[in-house]
């Protein structure tokens, strides 16, 4: 446990230094989180600044459009700042306190229906935009969740979030919401299952190289 703390790491203490090094290597090549961290600021944010500049020019030519676009962008930004802090703090806590064995037991290969249910409920209990779900997926995959369950988690996060359902019912009506929910309960595991099947062995290996995880099959 202490080793984990020392290197601020989410990997299990059982990993050898070589594996550790290999992981850093892979991440660097593929542009995973750690690799990104090392890239210079300008390279990472370059696309953003370019677009921003283009936006400013467009806004000067068409002030009306520019103002609306700016309002929209700032609106998204405000939403992000209000919703994301607790989500990422919970992500950090999950990463530090839930060890690989526990995660594997409940959502790994062979966790069966229980794993599907847990993934579904975890995703539904979430709040916030879909892009915030992917860092969670990273942690789950690293800790040995099965790909299918992580995909179910993503599906539930995107579609059956509880606060969103309440909101959907109030604006679209209960019937609309219930029919869509019923379809989602079938559709989300189905999409996860199909995606995993469609990938095949080589596809799963591609994901394994992203995480240096134990084989998923």
């Amino acid at each position: 446990m202490n080793e984990q703390v020392k290197d601020f790491s989410d990997k299990t203490a059982a990993k050898t230094p070589e594996q550790q090094a290999q992981q850093n290597n892979t991440a660097g090549k593929i542009g995973g989180q750690q690799g990104n961290q090392k890239k210079p600021f300008l390279k990472r944010y370059g696309a953003f600044f370019l677009l921003l500049a283009a936006g400013v020019v467009a806004g000067m030519v068409l002030p009306e459009l520019g103002k609306t676009a700016l309002d929209n962008t700032l609106g998204s930004f405000k939403e992000m700042l209000s919703v994301l802090p607790p989500i990422f703090i919970l992500l950090g806590l999950l990463d530090v306190w839930v060890d690989r064995a526990t995660m594997m037991k409940y959502t790994g290969k062979g966790s069966g229906f229980k794993g599907v249910l847990i993934a579904f409920l975890l995703g539904s209990a979430a709040a916030g935009p879909l892009y915030a779900a992917f860092p969670f997926a990273v942690v789950m995959l690293k800790k040995g969740s099965s790909l299918m369950n992580v995909l179910i988690f993503i599906g539930a996060w995107s579609t059956t979030k509880i606060p969103l359902l309440a909101f959907e019912a109030s604006s679209m009506g209960l019937k609309f919401t219930m029919v869509r929910l019923a379809l989602s309960i079938v559709g989300i595991p189905l999409i996860a299952f199909l995606t995993e099947k469609a990938l095949g062995q080589s596809g799963l290996e591609e994901i394994n190289t992203l995480y240096d995880a134990e084989p998923m099959k």
Partner: peptide
């Protein structure tokens, strides 16, 4: 984790805003 998705997220905000 937050900072790792931030550059792409900012780009998305701009594109969607426009």
């Amino acid at each position: 984790s937050f900072e790792s998705i931030l550059p792409q997220v900012l780009v998305i905000f701009l594109i969607i805003g426009f």
